[in-house]
């Protein structure tokens, strides 16, 4: 390192950096803030220089984490990890910053300690991460096994333990299939269904009403005795929902309603002869 290099005012360099930077003295007052800092926090050198970091920007940096990390640098001279500051800032609104403070005593003429703090705005990045997480979740969502068994008749087997989220998702997908296929009878078969609680039962009742608004009818079948008992104990009433004991009877009901009867071939052959 040559002397010439040492003579460069570090603040000149800091000024040219595009990221918001500030330099603090050992009393944590601001000695210098660069243009990027002014721009990012919509402040002004004259407003911040000479003031405590905890006072500027309406106290936006007066948080436990900022205190702790700066004190760690002053007392032990160790540079902590960058940390995240997520809050509603005055003037600029909701932002997430990664804040990186580090001691910078060696590079200045001054002998007392100075701290350089770097601010990285990760708001957009965090937003993007959240959207990505959301999209991934969408892909992982289970599809609802609605099967068309006859013109305008669908069967929806209820399988496993339903939670509210799954029940909601199922209702949504079922309604879309109804709209797209013009189905008029939906047989919900509970033979493979696990235990249900009041919340799920409430969802199923809502689903039935929503199905009706689309112009179709729900037929519940295969409600197992233990589920039926829980429902009664929980005070859940199926109201005016059509029920049939077995899937077969449910299918029969829907077929009849569509104007079909299921008869043994023998019966027809006898007539034919």
């Amino acid at each position: 390192m040559t002397d010439k290099k040492m003579n460069v005012n570090p603040f000149e360099i800091i000024q040219t950096v595009n990221e918001p930077l500030i330099v603090l003295d050992e009393f944590l007052s601001i000695i210098f803030g660069n243009r990027a800092f002014d721009k990012t926090f919509q402040t002004n050198r004259s407003l911040i220089e000479g003031n405590s970091i905890f006072k500027i920007c309406e106290g936006a940096f007066d948080t436990r984490e900022v205190h702790e990390s700066l004190e760690a640098i002053l007392t032990c001279d160790v540079q902590g990890e960058g940390f995240q500051l997520e809050k509603e800032f005055p003037l600029i609104g909701y932002r997430i910053f990664i804040i990186n403070p580090r001691p910078m005593r060696r590079y200045t003429e001054a002998t007392e300690k100075q701290i350089l703090i770097r601010f990285e705005d990760v708001t957009e990045q965090k937003k993007a991460e959240k959207t990505l997480k959301l999209k991934t979740k969408e892909i992982l969502e289970l599809s609802t096994p609605v099967t068309k068994i006859w013109d305008e008749i669908l069967v929806l087997p209820l399988i496993g333990t339903l939670d509210s989220h799954r029940a909601n998702q199922m209702m949504e997908q079922l309604l879309e299939v109804i709209r797209d296929t013009g189905a008029r009878y939906i047989i919900m078969d509970g033979t493979g269904m696990g235990a249900i609680d009041t919340a799920v039962a409430a969802h199923m009742l809502k689903a039935t009403s929503a199905v009706k608004l689309l112009g179709a009818q729900v037929i519940m079948t295969g409600i197992r005795p233990d589920v039926a008992m829980t429902m009664v104990h929980l005070g859940i009433e199926l109201g005016d929902i059509m029920t049939r004991a077995t899937l077969q009877e449910g299918v029969q009901y829907a077929m009849n309603a569509r104007g079909y009867v299921i008869v043994p071939r023998q019966a027809l052959e006898l007539k034919g002869n």
Partner: peptide, 21 residues
């Protein structure tokens, strides 16, 4: 579908109205 779900949640009774797909 989304309108139907919202109406149910809103609590408006449409019992007396005939509906079709």
């Amino acid at each position: 579908p989304a309108v139907a779900i919202t109406l149910i949640e809103l609590g408006l009774k449409m019992n007396q109205v005939y509906t079709a797909n």
